[in-house]
């Protein structure tokens, strides 16, 4: 990978604890944003940004629509909207039909990011019990981005990364322990 302009993490069941372990070890001067799309229940106003900011010195925030995407920031997709990346590297939100029974859908973010960042994108798919994100990773690959999955053996729910492994050319399979180191080596 030449130069990373965005690192996107998608996950579902069993992915929150991965984030809680990985984020504290990510260096605080990363020259790209980390964008997190996690399936969760709509309604309870999101505690996720607050929870994650206790684990890192990086700025953590829930995405605002039309917001400019900045390096060194951890962005969380709001619940019940699809999170899309525009060509001009801003976020937009979308309340269209659920995809793979999910909103936000990981596929929607991976796919739009693939076109916006092309080879300068890395996407990591974590633990989960459905196949959201698999098509997105395929798309990332076809635009020259880097595809990563959590080692299914280390995932609380192996289905999602395992499906990705079956259907997409994966550049790297990462254990939870390896993830932060991998992110820290990107520039």
């Amino acid at each position: 990978m030449t130069k990373c302009k965005a690192f996107i993490i998608g996950g579902s069941a069993g992915s929150l604890e991965v984030l809680l372990k990985v984020l504290p070890n990510v260096r605080t001067d990363i020259p790209f944003p980390i964008i997190i799309v996690i399936h969760r229940k709509h309604g309870v106003d999101s505690l996720l940004p607050a929870l994650l900011s206790t684990r890192t010195e990086l700025k953590v925030k829930e995405v605002d629509e039309k917001e400019e995407i900045m390096a060194g920031t951890v962005y969380i997709a709001p619940s019940d909207y699809h999170l899309l990346i525009e060509q001009n590297e801003t976020f937009s939100l979308d309340y269209s039909e659920k995809i793979n029974y999910s909103r936000p859908a990981i596929d929607a973010t991976f796919q739009t990011a693939a076109e916006a960042y092309k080879t300068k994108l890395a996407c990591l798919l974590l633990s989960g019990s459905n196949s959201d994100g698999v098509n997105g990773l395929k798309y990332v690959k076809s635009w020259g981005g880097t595809t990563l999955i959590q080692d299914p053996d280390s995932a609380q729910v192996a289905y999602m990364p395992a499906q990705a492994q079956l259907n997409v050319a994966i550049d790297q399979v990462l254990t939870i322990e390896d993830m932060a180191a991998f992110i820290n080596l990107l520039s």
Binding site: L84, E86, Q87, D94, S96, A116
Partner: peptide, 9 residues
């Protein structure tokens, strides 16, 4: 209209 969404549609 924002392009990412309309392109998907």
């Amino acid at each position: 209209y924002s392009r990412a969404s309309i392109k998907r549609r």
